[in-house]
Amino acid sequence: MESILDKSTLKNLIFDLGDVIIPIDLTAPVRNFAMLANLPEDEVRAIWKQHSIWDQYETGLIDDDAFRNHVRQLLKNDQWADEVIDTAWNTVLLDLPIERIKRIKELKSTYRLFLLSNTSPIHIRQVNRVLTGMDQPTLEELFERVFYSYDVRLMKPSPEIYRHVLAEAGLVAEETAFFDDNGANIKAAAELGIQAVHVQPPMTILNYLENI
């Protein structure tokens, strides 16, 4: 569900993070934890789903230490160092194309820029490490404001998270574009009057930003 942007009213751009700014592989963490635990991947995926580890962490119901301890308990390995768990968890993040960051930086002079992501603190720290290593600004420096699910205790596609962003940043929905790779997230934003753009392969965010 993709709307054509009305550039005559456009003042604000809200970006998703995963598969919009940085490519991700959602299957990688489970695959890597399965290898570490010497368990079948399907079994680890079932455990993950049953206990909603991902959602609990990304909505801030558990913190970093509780998340890591939960992983140790569920996969029955209390010897794993924090770094081992963080590294496996961060395999979801693929190489970040620097052109996307450069294009977003160019847009700062014309639009108010925001980030809205279902994510976790471990992932955000890693993305910022990658950006710093590329001599680029951190996410918090790149955008006027960042809205992380674990901070606001809400997740897309809940309408409440979009209302929260609009209210907190003082944005008018119709003057705001939202770029996300998830159809449900796009639908929820569009229903609130936001100009919602579904970023879908083989296109990347750069294609959608060409003419604004």
Rank of each mutant, 00 (worst) to 15 (best):
P121A: 05
T9E: 02
G133T: 13
I4F: 12
I205L: 09
V71Y: 09
R153L: 08
V30D: 04
S117A: 14
F33D: 02
W89P: 04
R129T: 08
D135N: 15
D64R: 15
S3H: 09
R125Q: 15
D64I: 13
I53Q: 01
I14Q: 08
V44N: 01
I122F: 15
D63H: 02
N77V: 00
R129G: 11
N185L: 09
Y111W: 00
Y150N: 02
A28Y: 01
G60D: 12
I212M: 12
I62Y: 14
V172W: 02
L94A: 12
I122M: 14
I14H: 05
A188V: 00
G170N: 05
K7D: 03
M155Q: 14
T132M: 11
I161T: 15
F33M: 06
T138M: 11
A190S: 12
Q126C: 06
V20W: 10
P121L: 07
A173N: 09
V30E: 02
F178V: 02
R103I: 06
K156M: 13
P29Y: 01
W48G: 01
L116R: 13
L26A: 10
E99D: 12
D65I: 14
R112Q: 15
I24Y: 01
V130Q: 07
N118M: 03
L131D: 11
F15N: 12
V197T: 01
W80K: 11
F178P: 12
V152W: 11
V44F: 06
E168V: 12
K102C: 01
S149Q: 05
W54A: 09
A88F: 03
A88M: 06
I4T: 08
E144P: 05
L17R: 07
Q73V: 03
M1E: 12
K108H: 15
I62N: 02
E99A: 15
